[in-house]
């Protein structure tokens, strides 16, 4: 098992898990797998970043990764 920090923004905060600072996942879970575990529909997310860098859904999360999940923001 690995532990990661999960950060969710705006409308995605409703999906925030308990212990989001130390969220446990099986090894080799991808971002797609993380979204599924949190019941976040993929279409509600637009930008995923890990440790300050954009990553794709196939990225395998590592222990202590800080994962940010960001929705579409378009207001002006």
């Amino acid at each position: 098992m690995i532990e990661i920090e999960v950060r969710l923004f705006a409308t995605l905060v409703k999906y925030i898990p308990k212990e989001s600072d130390t969220f446990k996942l099986p090894d080799k879970t991808t971002i797609a797998g993380l979204l599924a575990k949190l019941n976040i529909p993929e279409e509600e997310t637009k930008l995923i970043f890990v440790n300050g860098k954009k990553e794709h859904l196939e990225y395998e999360v590592q222990n202590r990764d800080r994962v940010g999940i960001f929705p579409p923001v378009g207001g002006g």
Binding site: T11, E43, E44, K46, P71, P72, V73, G74, G75
Partner: peptide, 11 residues
């Protein structure tokens, strides 16, 4: 990819 509305519509 589907062009979603921004979340500003909701928040």
């Amino acid at each position: 990819s589907p062009r979603a509305d921004g979340v500003e519509k909701e928040v």
